[in-house]
């Protein structure tokens, strides 16, 4: 499976030749280096370990430096694994750039969503909140009833309640690649992508692509 590590740059829009305006997220993707190849014989599964973003050696631990030196690649800040299908082959040291994708392709983008801290039910679960008037006080953003009386006598598991929101892994599926700038390693995908600007994202071939009729 094709994949690359990148950094979210920000959003803008692109105007197509027919005048259609497309909202896009720009991602600085690659250059990534293949640091390690996982094989079924040795590791029990097939994957490539990619590294992204060159960094000063002193920013890394000795263990990380040794790992990267053994692979013969520059010092890299981020290491992530991408599962491989059988039949694909990568070599350690190989460089992967944004041009592995081409406009029109569909991709999934994985990122870490923005942290919202301890959030109430209105923000976290889109509850409506309570009435603002008719003698109500302190009810504007309250969750309302969370259960019945003596039956069942407890709150059901999984009830939507306040709690920590965001800062977790989110995948935006099936986004269209709109632009590829291979000189500057930029990708533009249609729509939004999880995480803040500057956040790390992993771009992979889309898993749920529509296959054309008669295709494989």
């Amino acid at each position: 499976m094709k994949g690359i590590i990148g950094k979210k740059v920000g959003m803008t829009q692109v105007i197509k030749d027919n005048g259609e305006v497309v909202p896009v997220t720009v991602i600085e993707a690659g250059p990534c280096y293949v640091v390690q190849v996982r094989t079924p014989e040795k590791d029990g599964y097939r994957a490539v370990q990619l590294g992204f973003e060159e960094v000063k050696p002193k920013r890394l631990t000795k263990g990380q430096r040794g790992h990267l030196e053994r692979a013969g690649v520059p010092m890299l800040r981020y290491l992530r694994e991408i599962r491989m299908r059988s039949g694909e082959s990568y070599e350690v040291g190989q460089v992967i750039r944004a041009d592995i994708f081409s406009p029109g392709e569909r991709v999934d983008v994985v990122g870490k969503s923005k942290g919202r801290g301890f959030a109430g039910v209105v923000k976290r679960h889109h509850f409506g909140g309570g009435p603002h008037t008719h003698g109500q006080s302190d009810r504007e953003r309250a969750p309302g009833s969370i259960g019945a009386c003596a039956t069942p006598g407890r709150v059901w598991k999984g009830s939507r309640m306040p709690g920590h929101m965001g800062a977790k892994r989110v995948t935006a599926q099936n986004l269209e690649v709109v632009l590829v700038d291979s000189d500057r390693n930029l990708l533009a995908v249609k729509g939004s992508v999880p995480g803040p600007n500057g956040g790390l994202v992993i771009i992979k071939e889309a898993r749920k692509q529509k296959v054309a009729k008669g295709g494989k």
Partner: peptide, 12 residues
Amino acid sequence: MNLVESLERQLE
């Protein structure tokens, strides 16, 4: 110049 701006500037 940030990258988004530089990308936008290419568009005439």
